[in-house]
Amino acid sequence: MATIVKRPSGKWQATVRKDGQSRSMSFHKRADATKWARETELSADRGLLTPALSVGASEMTLGEVLRKYRDDVTSEKRCADNESYAINGFLRKCSQLANKKVNKLRSADFVHYRDQRIKSMKAATVVRELGWLQHALDVACDDWGQNLPQGNPVKPVRRPKIDNRRERRLQEGEWQALLNAVNQSRSPLMKPLLTLALATGMRRGELLSMQWRHVDLERRTVFLPQTKNGRARTVPLSPNAVAVLMDLPRADDRCLPLSGNSVRLAFERLRQRAGVIDLTFHDLRHEAVSRFVESGLSLAQVQMISGHRDLRMLMRYTHLQTDDIVAKLAAVGLD
């Protein structure tokens, strides 16, 4: 019996099953998948659908799929460092699941994985992990000849609800405590990185990908050809940001030649040394954008600096200090 389904990649997967044996193939056009299915069914009726043909394409384990996915697919992504780190962690900590053949995987395996991970990780992290697990199995099925008899087992797994809204602002003394702590850091680039994060409101990935050829110190701008939302933008630089950039060495094409993971680990260490609780690197972007608004810039001007695609997203970052609003209301004499 033949079945033809459209994969998330847009390809058409044809599967022929007979007497406990199966064979699958993916095509760009449905017509080609249908033609292949008819020819394979005829071969099966003649007894030519051999076990070697049916099981050979399904011999990969989940671990083998993930290693190939990491090397062939993840390596081409902008988030390659972070995703590769996450995949390597999965391979180390989930060896029992990684050693399963892909055609033996079931949704229950990943439901259990989700329930265990959510105990120690944020919902957004778990959702990202389920995302690359699902994509890896889709690629294995579409491009590497793997057979998933019941479809992708990750797809029906319910994702945890994400609530990324944060109102964390720097409290009195915290910024100085961070700067004092970062002076003890083994990386001389952490202090300029933190200072630029607060001065520009740029994302961590944007700061780490910033190249000298895109920096114009005379015009006090930096051009970002690639950003999280896919839109290039030019970021204006404050005098403080220009001063930091002028003091940086130019031995590399990048202004801050650090990896995302090394920054994550270094920030966690210095945060603990500074005694600052519940602060993430991304909170510095939140703080910067809020300060832009508090300084009197319009939301449209802040949007140009921060790169938010619409004002609704920008409003999530502009939690103005209540005391400032009270002072302004008193100044204008509103009853």
Rank of each mutant, 00 (worst) to 15 (best):
R38H: 05
K328C: 01
R159F: 09
G173Y: 11
F267Q: 10
R92P: 00
M313R: 09
K77Q: 07
Y113H: 12
A44V: 06
T15F: 07
A80H: 05
G230F: 14
G47I: 10
S107A: 12
A274K: 03
R158N: 02
K6Q: 02
R30N: 06
L198F: 13
L105Y: 00
D310K: 03
A331F: 11
D310E: 10
V332N: 06
Q171I: 04
Q184T: 12
P160K: 15
R128V: 08
D253F: 05
L329H: 14
S75Q: 10
L42A: 15
N147P: 06
M246S: 10
R70G: 00
K122C: 00
Q134R: 09
Q116W: 05
A177W: 04
S43K: 15
P225F: 03
E206P: 01
K122D: 02
L189I: 08
D335F: 15
E294G: 04
V5P: 00
R204A: 05
Q303A: 05
V332G: 03
D81Q: 10
R166T: 08
V276F: 03
R271S: 13
R291F: 02
T227Q: 11
K77N: 07
A44S: 12
R7V: 01
S298R: 04
R220E: 15
G20Q: 11
R250H: 09
L329S: 08
A98E: 02
S120P: 07
A199E: 15
T200E: 04
W212H: 06
V111G: 00
R114A: 00
Q134W: 02
Q150K: 14
D335V: 14
R203V: 14
W175M: 09
R168H: 07
E167Y: 13
K11W: 04
S107I: 01
L196C: 06
V326T: 08
A86C: 12
